[in-house]
Design a protein around this nucleic acid. Structure first.
Lengths: 219, 219, 219, 219
DNA sequence: CATGAATGAGGTTTCATTCAT
DNA sequence: GATGAATGAAACCTCATTCAT
């Protein structure tokens, strides 16, 4: 009997946990971490404030939970993209960026970024630093490695500063995406989401590409 | 006591005002707008909390003062860069980006960005939206116009998405600069400041450049 | 599961009850009644919080249970001491105090006192008043009666204020015992437990004793 | 002008401070430290809750302020009693106990004891330990020294355990006094205040006194 | 009987803003 | 103009108590 009891509890716990993470992302991104009240999170999750404390010791722990959860999701997609193929670096970079930035739910992606890039640096420096290292920095290092591969294969010119390029691509897309959340308030801010990603990636690739005619010299 | 007060009210006011703006930038950027206490600003400016209310009606008004002051400074430099020359678009873009991002006091530039990109979106949406429009968006539109010019002159290939490129350049550099403030806590985050700007600009220009061999091969 | 439950409900109930009382004394004395959490009591008793409510309606009821249980224990010993003998008052007082204060488990005695003398007065006035009446006051009245007996037999001088003396003896010993729990933190606080009791009783008796040689002269 | 400003501020500050200390003693003793709400203290002092934080960083700091303030007052009286005289030890002990326990405001004395003996041990161990050391323990050591003097002069018998006696006297009186606050709820608890002190001291002295007629014969 | 998730009232602490001096 | 004491509205967190399973 105790065999069947445990799973049920886990099941329920997991469901609630998940609901809390979603609600927290929503509210934190909407209001900002500091500004957001736990009451709001609770309400969004359909529970009362106190219930949150069954799952997270502290407001900050809840935030950390959110960050880790969604970061893991994003990198699962990212690594899947890289594992799948033995395509040219160019194609793999395109795929990687699509997987990371153009996921099914653009809303939640924007939200997370708004939350993470914004205020967190001051409000919860530890969480912020951790995210910076395990998120953006990790991503541009992935791209950096693909660029190196591409250079070896002669796809890219050997003198391009791929590291900085990768940083620019990642940071630029992130900030643009975050700002899209304010598209309504700032005239001229909105861009089509797919155009943003595609053009950015193509420009990035173009900036690295070996000038035509010099294909196989280099390295 | 009233004898000495009258003569240089304006003078003293301006000095105090300036001291307050500097102190506010410092404290807001250090602690974040919400987290920062007016007591701290007052202390940094060498006055008492109540005195702030002689110059600014509200904490938010103080913030707005800071944003406008430093934004004006940045765009004075920017427009000076554009007005000065009739050089090729390539060169003008280089100059513009240098003026905006590589100003004499990298500290204060970083600080301002940290403040503005960060939490402000949630905490003071009005100020944030205003800055977004008058700052970053204005800058990438400037660049966008230069790109159009360059296309007309044959410096750039006509099919490049200059608008998105300009956005990426501006956003990417801003976010990278902001993150540099956390270089100590996140291993592998630091980049040389000049390399960041130079490489970014060169890659941006490279991505727009007409493919070698075609066109007239001019710089 | 329901197969094993029925047979020894009573048995188990009593055991659980007892475990709860012990655990509650331990936790209440350690942390204080208010500060102590029912979770802690439950954990110390090896059950879950909810289970407590099968035995006690309320936290306060649990406390009352503890007080009555241990108070009864103490007075069982006390009355046994008095019933046993027809000795001189002096000897009976010695015996009484030993039974009450020098019981087998000095730990639990201290704990109880710590709990009862401490904060209870404010936190649970009803329980406190009840304990005061049925515990200390009852004890010093017992002693008072023994003193009266002693006076009649000429063991004690008739003008001694036995009532106040008994109060002083009881209160003094209780508070000293309670404070011994902090012997580690306060230098110079510790005293040997037996010396405390013996010396106190002897001094009390000496203070009552008829002056030598002046047996019948009074005042 | 600044000459006259400072004193006035100090003056006001001191007055408020004092009002807060009095109010805090009142409320803490009435409700217990934990149970007491800062709102109540504020109300009793005629200010709002927030104002307390101008004078004390924390609820605990306020408590510490109260303890130190009233402890200092009590020991000022005590030391004055000892300094004044070259009387026999017997007389000095009587005077000391009177000064400490029978001060002009029996209410506030009781209150303080109620606060200090009660719950503090669990709730604010640091403050409690400090008080124990600087208050009761210090007092019974004072008495202990007087007893030693009295032994040298032949006032007291040399074999009496003065140390334990002093402890008993101090603890007993304190606890009795504290309990007097509940005299209304517990029948038979009340004693006349002066009788309590006088009889206690006389019994204490009697217990130490050399048996009549055996002045120099020792043990 | 036992569990443990959920509730919700309550209290300390912070800080922008006001105002008498 | 400047001061700084006072206000009072939030917001996080705790925990006794309930109840469906």
């Amino acid at each position: 009997m105790s065999v069947t009891k445990a799973p049920r509890v886990e099941q329920r716990s997991d469901t609630r946990m998940h609901a809390l993470l979603e609600a927290a992302l929503e509210v934190f991104a909407e209001r900002g971490y500091r500004t957001a009240r736990l009451d709001d999170v609770a309400e969004a999750a359909g529970v009362t404030k106190g219930a949150i404390y069954h799952y997270f010791d502290t407001k900050e722990a809840l935030l950390l939970g959110v960050v880790e959860h969604y970061q893991a999701l994003a990198f699962d997609r990212a690594e899947e993209a890289l594992r799948d193929s033995r395509m040219p670096a160019t194609a793999r970079i395109r795929l990687l960026m699509r997987k990371v930035f153009a996921n099914g739910d653009p809303e939640s992606g924007q939200r997370l970024l708004t939350l993470l890039i914004g205020g967190l640096a001051h409000e919860v420096p530890v969480v912020h630093a951790r995210w910076l290292q395990d998120g953006p920095a990790r991503l541009w290092k992935m791209i950096g490695r693909l660029v190196e591969e591409g250079k070896k294969r002669g796809e890219f010119r050997p003198d391009a500063d791929g590291e900085v390029g990768a940083r620019l691509l990642v940071s630029g897309l992130m900030l643009q995406r975050m700002w899209q959340q304010h598209a309504d308030d700032v005239p001229g801010l909105a861009v089509d989401h797919d155009r943003l990603i595609d053009s950015s990636v193509e420009l990035f690739l173009a900036s690295l590409r070996a000038p035509s005619g010099t294909r196989s010299s280099a390295t």
